[in-house]
Design a protein around this nucleic acid. Structure first.
Length: 109
DNA sequence: TTGTTGACGCCCG
DNA sequence: CCGGGCGCCAACA
């Protein structure tokens, strides 16, 4: 049974996200060539169980942490992002205009 | 093989 | 601007 290209490809994009940058599930799925697989990005990470995978740099389209219910991962993710210099507003949202990952990985100052 | 699930995204009010 | 609802599609049991 060959590897799962779907998960493998999605995870590959997540690994492409540079330090101090964040990307939405939809953006990652699209970058992987799977525009309708936004949900599978999170699923892929969950199944991957890769500790070196920068899953914390992945947020939903609203620029917020995806509430998965229990587990303290959502709080951990926020702390990790703040540790990388990513700031949150009062709504707990990230400014994609400043921290949103781009193919150019370029940030306009 | 069929049905249900899910780290989401977009549309509408 | 915010909340609620519908749609997509592979992975899993």
């Amino acid at each position: 049974m060959a590897v799962k290209p779907l998960h493998q490809q999605l995870l590959a994009i997540v690994r492409t996200i540079p330090f101090g940058r964040v990307a939405s599930y939809g953006a990652i799925a699209r970058a992987a060539g799977l525009p309708r697989h936004a949900r599978h990005v999170g699923i892929a990470i969950k199944v991957a169980e890769d500790p070196e995978l920068p899953w914390w740099r992945v947020v939903n389209g609203d620029g917020r942490i995806s509430p998965r219910g229990l587990d303290g991962s959502d709080d951990l993710q926020k702390l990790l992002l703040e540790h990388e210099g990513v700031s949150f507003d009062d709504k707990g949202r990230i400014d994609f205009d400043r921290f949103g990952w781009r193919a150019d990985d370029q940030i306009p100052d």
